[in-house]
Amino acid sequence: MVELIVLILAILCVYLIFKYMGLKKEIMSCQDQIEYIQENNSSMRISSSVRYKPLLKIIKLFETQREDNKSLYVKHLHQEETIKELISNISHDIRTPLTSIQGYVEMLESANRDKQVQYIDIITKRLNDMEIMLDSFFLYTKLQTQNKPFILEKQPVYPLLCDVLLSYYPQLSKIGLEPKIVCEDENLEGYINADQMKRVFQNLLMNVIRYGSMPFQIELYRKEKDLVCVFSNAIKAEHIEVEHIFDRFYQADHSRSNNGSGLGMAIVKDLCEKMNIVIEAQIECGIISFVMIIRG
Score class of each variant (00 low, 15 high):
residue 8 I to D: 11
residue 9 L to I: 06
residue 9 L to P: 00
residue 19 K to P: 00
residue 24 K to N: 15
residue 29 S to Y: 03
residue 31 Q to S: 15
residue 34 I to K: 05
residue 50 V to Q: 01
residue 52 Y to A: 08
residue 57 K to A: 09
residue 58 I to T: 11
residue 71 S to E: 11
residue 77 L to I: 13
residue 78 H to F: 01
residue 79 Q to M: 06
residue 82 T to F: 14
residue 83 I to A: 03
residue 88 S to E: 06
residue 89 N to W: 09
residue 89 N to R: 15
residue 96 T to I: 12
residue 98 L to H: 04
residue 99 T to G: 01
residue 109 E to Y: 15
residue 109 E to M: 11
residue 111 A to L: 08
residue 112 N to I: 01
residue 113 R to M: 06
residue 114 D to F: 08
residue 114 D to I: 04
residue 115 K to T: 14
residue 119 Y to K: 12
residue 119 Y to L: 15
residue 123 I to A: 13
residue 128 N to A: 14
residue 129 D to A: 11
residue 132 I to R: 05
residue 140 Y to K: 13
residue 140 Y to Q: 09
residue 140 Y to N: 06
residue 144 Q to I: 04
residue 146 Q to S: 12
residue 147 N to T: 14
residue 147 N to L: 09
residue 151 I to E: 15
residue 154 K to D: 02
residue 156 P to T: 09
residue 166 L to I: 14
residue 168 Y to K: 15
residue 169 Y to S: 15
residue 171 Q to N: 14
residue 182 V to G: 06
residue 186 E to W: 04
residue 191 Y to F: 09
residue 197 M to C: 08
residue 198 K to S: 11
residue 198 K to V: 08
residue 205 L to M: 14
residue 211 Y to T: 07
residue 217 Q to H: 05
residue 219 E to T: 13
residue 220 L to W: 03
residue 221 Y to M: 02
residue 231 F to Y: 15
residue 232 S to V: 03
residue 233 N to E: 05
residue 237 A to D: 03
residue 244 H to S: 02
residue 247 D to M: 01
residue 257 S to Q: 12
residue 259 N to F: 10
residue 261 S to E: 02
residue 264 G to H: 02
residue 265 M to T: 04
residue 265 M to V: 00
residue 276 N to K: 10
residue 281 A to N: 12
residue 281 A to D: 06
residue 288 I to S: 07
residue 291 V to G: 01
residue 291 V to C: 02
residue 293 I to C: 07
residue 294 I to G: 00
